[in-house]
Amino acid sequence: MFSYCADPSTLDTFRWLTCYLTTGVHMSFYKSFLLVLALLAVTAPVALSFGFLGAMSARSPMKPVSWLGKGYIAIVRGVPDIAFFLFFVIALDQSFELIKHNIVCPDWTDPIRQGNDFLVCPQAKVPLGTSPEYVHQLYGFLLAVITFAIVFGAFAANVLYGGMQAVPRAQLETAEAYGMTRRQTFWRVLVPQMWVYALPGLSNLWMVLIKATPLLFLLGIEDIVYWARELGGTKTSKFSAYPHPDWRMWYFLFLLIFYLSFTKVSEVVLERVMRRLNKGQATSGGEAMRKEASA
C-alpha cells in the first residue's frame, strides 16, 4: 500500500501497523464486512416474502395448504440453524442441478448417482463449468441467501401469522360488511393492519439475523469471522512478511464492537419505524403517542 512497506521488519510500530492493516488480506477482511451487509440486505426482504407465503398458506382454508405452511414453520423452527446449514447448501445445489438436468439433458442415460458421486450432464451444471469465477461466487452467495431466507422465513412466517391473527376481528367484519371479498379483505385491510402487530417480532428477527451471520462460513461464504480467524492466527516469518503470535483476541474484539454498534443502530432505526407505524393505531403504543401529542 505505502511505499515504505517493502521491508516491514525494519519499521517502527506505527508504520508497521499502517502497512499491516492495509495488506491484501486485510482488504479482503474489510470487503467481507460489505459482503455480510449486502447479504443481510438481500436476505431480509427474501426471508420476509418467504415468511409471507408461509403465513398465508398456514392461514389458508384449504387443509393441505395450511398443513404445508404449518409444517414448514414447525420443522424449520424446531431445528438449530447450524444443523440446517451443515447439509442444506449441498442439498439445494444438487436439487437445482437435478432439475436443470431433467430439462436440458432428457436423453442422458448414465446414472446420476454413481457410488458417492453426483453426476449430471455438463450442460446442467449450475453454474456451468466454463463460467468465470465470479459467477461461481455469485451462485454461492445466492445459495447462502436462499438457505438463510428459508430458515428465517419460517420465523418470519410465524411472526406474520401472529400479526395477522392479532388484527382485531371487528376490522375484518367491517370490511365484510362493506361487501369486500375475502381477497379484498386480505389485501386491503388485513395486510396493511398487521404490520404494527408484527413489527416487534420482526425487529427481533432482524437482530437474530444479524447475530446469525457468524454461521455464514458454514455456507461457504468467506465472512468476517472466517477472515478474523484467518488473520488472527499465528503467522510465522516463513510465510508472511508480518509475523505475529495469536492475535485472534483483537480481531474478535473488533467483531464484537461491529456487532454491538450494528445492533445499536438497528435498534434506533426500528424504534423510529415503530413510532411511525403506531401513529393513529388503536394500540397502547398509539395511545401513548396521542397522550404525548395532547400534553
Binding site: 495488506t23 491484501g24 488480506v25 486485510h26 482488504m27 479482503s28 484467518e230 492466527g233 510465522t236 516463513k238 510465510f239 508472511s240 512478511a241 508480518y242
Partner: peptide, 18 residues
Amino acid sequence: EGAYPPYNFINDAGNLDG
C-alpha cells in the same frame, strides 16, 4: 482449503499461496 501452511495458505496479498 487455504489455511494450512506450507501446503496451502493465504499470503499477505490475499492470494492463495503455498
